[in-house]
């Protein structure tokens, strides 16, 4: 696998678009959180003791949830990176050439899945650095709490990232064209939200929580108005959400393998 990754690295290390997209992915995470932090800090009325009426969402322990949640808004950026790299292979027909030159189809798809995993890890690592930055530098560490309290949100972020990025990869493997795949990814993101909004919030069909993206979205609840969340119910459902995410990941891989291993390239 290391050798396969080395070859994948040769494909991207001199590809400027890759570096630009990667830089955008990395910078956007602290960037967006800093924007939201600024808006909250400056635009909302403060209580007499100088504290915001919203609490301190960017101080420990809430920084874990806030930064993770903010960063999920940016999934389209790494998705574009994945879609670009994958559909390039189809555009240049290098997916065929790689097989002709001596990769098996399994190796081709396997190394790409590992890359999706690595990008999820990298993006989680950037979130971690951002959380630490806000927790230590932009705010004082509140007395009497552990810095790692709430760090499970980082794991939830990773699960959500892996799930979204795999969807992006699946779409690019099935659609094979970058523009269409990016469009499909965006439309699916919006469409699912609308469908869930209608059936869950209006008709109260709870099963809608287990839609492919919603199930991972629910791992990190909206951080700024805590009163909206029934914490007890959420805690109770976390294992179900995680199991749901795992089932979907398995299905994505299965669909991909069926299509790529069996069809003409």
């Amino acid at each position: 696998m290391l050798n396969l990754l080395r070859i994948e690295w040769m494909k991207v290390k001199n590809y400027r678009t890759f570096w630009i997209l990667l830089a955008i992915v990395i910078v956007s995470v602290p960037g967006l959180s800093y924007m939201i932090f600024n808006i909250m800090d400056n635009s909302f009325p403060k209580a007499k003791n100088g504290k915001s009426i919203l609490g301190s969402p960017f101080a420990f322990p809430d920084a874990w949830q806030s930064v993770s949640w903010n960063s999920t808004l940016l999934f389209i950026l790494p998705a574009i990176l994945i879609i670009t790299l994958t559909t390039n292979e189809f555009t240049y027909k290098t997916h065929r050439q790689n097989i002709i030159d001596g990769w098996s189809r399994k190796q081709f798809i396997g190394v790409k899945l590992v890359e999706v995993f690595l990008l999820s890890l990298l993006s989680t690592f950037v979130v971690l650095l951002t959380v630490l930055g806000f927790g230590y530098i932009a705010n004082k560490v509140p007395a009497g709490i552990s810095v790692w309290q709430g760090s499970r949100f980082l794991f939830f972020y990773f699960v959500q990232a892996l799930s979204y990025f795999t969807i992006a990869f699946l779409l690019s493997m099935l659609i094979k064209r970058s523009g269409l795949a990016i469009g499909a990814f965006l439309i699916y993101m919006l469409l699912e939200n609308v469908v869930v909004g209608i059936f869950h919030n209006i008709y109260h069909i709870n099963a809608m929580e287990y839609m492919p993206e919603e199930v991972t979205d629910r791992l990190i609840p909206f951080p700024y108005i805590k009163a909206l969340l029934d914490v007890g119910r959420w805690e109770h459902l976390i294992p179900g959400y995680l199991a749901g995410a795992a089932v979907y990941l398995f299905i994505y891989c299965l669909v991909m393998a069926r299509s790529f291993l069996r069809n003409d390239l």
């Binding site: 050439q97 790689n98 001596g102």
Partner: peptide
């Protein structure tokens, strides 16, 4: 397939890489 030199239909290479870098990738895969 690694032991066979194959030219199928059209030349398939990474457009954004130089000729030599493309050959490095092919050599590594083989």
């Amino acid at each position: 397939r690694q032991k066979i030199g194959t030219l199928l239909e059209t030349p398939n290479f990474y457009h954004y890489l130089s000729g030599e870098r493309n050959l490095r990738i092919a050599a590594a895969i083989k």
